[in-house]
Design a protein around this nucleic acid. Sequence first.
DNA 1: GTCTATAGCTGGATAGAC
DNA 2: GTCTATCCAGCTATAGAC
Lengths: 213, 213
Amino acid sequence: MLNGPATTGWREARHQSARQAIVDAAWELVHEEGLAALSIRDLAKRAGITTPTVYAYFESKQAIYDAMFGRAATEFSELMTGPFDDDDPARLLLSSVRRFVEFCMTDVARYQLLFQRTIPGFEPSAESYAPAVRALESARGRLAHNGVTEPRHLDLWTALLTGLVDQQVSNDPGGDRWTRLIDEAVAMFLAHCRPGPTAPVGTSRSPTRGARR
Amino acid sequence: MLNGPATTGWREARHQSARQAIVDAAWELVHEEGLAALSIRDLAKRAGITTPTVYAYFESKQAIYDAMFGRAATEFSELMTGPFDDDDPARLLLSSVRRFVEFCMTDVARYQLLFQRTIPGFEPSAESYAPAVRALESARGRLAHNGVTEPRHLDLWTALLTGLVDQQVSNDPGGDRWTRLIDEAVAMFLAHCRPGPTAPVGTSRSPTRGARR
DNA sequence: GTCTATAGCTGGATAGAC
DNA sequence: GTCTATCCAGCTATAGAC
C-alpha cells in the first residue's frame, strides 16, 4: 500500500472526482437520448462545463465511452461476484441468472454498451474490460458446482442467456415475454448438460476440413 | 392481374429499376463501411448519380433503410420458406437452423438491420416487415411437425437461435465457436420441448404477485 | 429527372486569453 | 483548468437552372 498508484494526492482526487461527474452526466444523457446519440456538446452542457473542459479530462470521445464501459463492467462484476444467500447449487445458479437478466433489463443502454458492439469504432481498453472477465469466471464456477464443466457448455450457457435478454429487449421491451422463460430455460440446460448422460453420440460431424484447433 | 398495382407501365418499371440500383449501391457501401456509416453523399457517388437524384427516388434516408430492410426480409423469407429436401422432421428442423445461421453469418450488416435495432430512429414499415412474419410462421410449422406447439416454446426457440448467432458475431466473428454448437442446442431443445414428458412440475413459482396476464 | 450549388445544421476537436 | 471563439469536416435536404 506504500507505492503504486494508491498515493492519491488531493489534486489527483479532485481530478478523478471531476472525471466521475462527467461520466455521471454522460450516463444521464445516454439514458435519455440513446447510446449513439451522445455528443460532447450536450455532455458539457449537462455537466455544467464547456466543451474544451471535457477535453481537459478525456482525450477523446472514445475515452469517454471507455470510462462508461469501465463503470458498467465494474457494476456488472460486483453484482455477479457478490454473495448469494443460497446453498443449493441449482437455486444459486438460478438466482445468478435472475440477477443477470435484471441487470440487463434495468438499463438497456448499459446492456448495449457492455454486450453488443453497437458504437462504430469503439473497443474497450483492457483495463475497462477486466471486470467483465471476472464476472464470466464466476459464472464458470457456478456452473461447475452444478456439474457442468465442459467449456463448450459455458458457451452454450452464455448463448442461451444473451438470447433471452436480446429477444426481450428487442421485441418486448418492458414486458416479460422472454424473461418469464428463465426457469424453464435453466432447467432445460441443466437437464442436458449435467454429467449423467455423457456426450450424445456424434450424429452429424461436419464433413470435409481436416484437423482444426 | 387486370387491376391493382400490377399494370406497371414502362415508366414505372424504369422507376423501380432505378430504385433497385440505388438499393444495390447502398448494400455495397454498408458491407464496406458498416450499417451506421451509410451517407447519402457516398451512396450517390457509388450509384453514379448526385445527391438530389437520390431524393427523386427516396423521400428520406429512412426510406432507403426501409427499402434495404424490405429486400433483406424478402431474402430471409424466401430462404426460410423455400423447399427442404428432407422428410424427417427433426433433420428438416436442423437444416432450417443451419440455413438461418448461415444467412446471418454471411452478411452481418444484414443481420443487424433485420434483427437488431441499431439504427437510431429507424422502424421498418409494415410492408417491409411482412415477409419476416411469414418466415417466423414457417418456423412455427416446422416446430409443430416436431411436436412442439406451445407458443412459449417458439419464444424459447427464437431466443436460443438468436443467442447463438449473437454470441458468434459479437465474440468470434469469422469463427465457429458458437455455430458448431447448433446440433447440440437443437437436441437439447427438442429433448426438453417434445410432448413426452409434460410440463415439469412447477418447482419455483415466483412468490407474491397475484394473477397477472 | 438530373444536374450545380448551397443552405442549414451538428459534430469533434483546438487556439489562445485568463 | 476553464473560458470564448472558432475551425473544419461531415451530414441531410432543398432551390433552381436545364
